[in-house]
Design a protein around this nucleic acid. Structure first.
Lengths: 159, 159
DNA sequence: TTGTTTTACTTGAAGCTTCAAGTAAAACAA
DNA sequence: TTGTTTTACTTGAAGCTTCAAGTAAAACAA
């Protein structure tokens, strides 16, 4: 067996920082959203992606791609959001295999009321810690990592 | 109500990239570790932190801090690791409130055998996507964000 | 056409995480 | 001392995510 290349100082710092952000940041945002509207960050993102989509609806697979989730996870969560009256499932006219998730008026009202508090939290927890150059660097480096993890991830399509 | 400041282009890119990394990277590493040894990334980190500690033991609260976890989460996971024979719980001699988690020989063997594959995965999924400068930038920016989220996080103590 | 494979989901169970409530010892306060 | 507060956990239940298995329609292959 060949000797593995261990991490050097910067690699270790970058990796540990990412790992820590990874557990702390979603937890902090979950706490804010839980207090504001009894939903999780993932729930919020599902609603947000639908609210930004044309017609406020998306096929389940496209919604799964935009939330980086598995179809199974999304299916369970949409069922929950449906019970809360925020999303509806509809048949796709052209392809009977496809389910379309549609944001309801009530769902739209919910996200509109939650958005300002959520954006404030994102600023307070992360963006306010950085200079403008840092933000640009993080965007550039972050997208490189995303490309590595999934080379046709939707956030790269916007470029 | 005052108008919220929405995210500008770079802010949105940085935020979306971080969010995507956040769901994709742990999932990919979980898959690798699950295949290699039927354990999660969090399980691995618990073992790794213990293996690096002097004497291979740490109080539960210190271990929770080093894995960015809640005590409750850690307590459940240590119970599981204990059943697999990788960790033992011991009383703290000086303070009866404290439980010390101690890595067993078997736990040490496990992490030694898993480490090379895990480090390879971290490289393949993230570090190999970046230049040396990117790594240094990410370390610097990442630590700023961590400091924002928890200003005496243990990774900042090493400086 | 007919059979086979692929796509786009859905479902239930198992396992994991969070949350609320609890225990017991240490520290502090008067 | 004695009572109160804080610290350091642990526990069980509820909710969430993953995993394995399934369904049904579309696409392809011969």
């Amino acid at each position: 067996m060949t000797e593995p290349r261990w991490l050097n100082a910067d690699e270790r710092r970058a990796w540990l920082a990412l790992l820590s952000i990874n557990t702390l940041l979603p937890a902090a945002l979950d706490t804010q959203l839980q207090a504001a509207g009894k939903l999780s960050l993932f729930d919020y993102n599902v609603l947000a992606m639908l609210s930004e989509a044309e017609g406020r609806f998306l096929p389940m697979s496209e919604l799964a791609a935009r939330t980086s989730a598995s179809l199974s996870r999304l299916s369970h969560v949409v069922t929950k959001l449906q019970r809360r009256g925020w999303v509806e499932r509809e048949a796709h006219p052209g392809d009977a295999r496809v389910t379309v998730a549609h944001l309801t008026e009530s769902g739209m009202d919910t996200i509109v009321s939650l958005a300002p508090g959520h954006v404030d939290a994102v600023r307070a927890l992360m963006l306010d810690a950085m200079t403008d150059d840092d933000v640009a660097d993080l965007a550039r480096i972050g997208e490189k990592i995303v490309a590595r993890l999934d080379d046709d991830h939707w956030i790269l399509r916007e470029r």
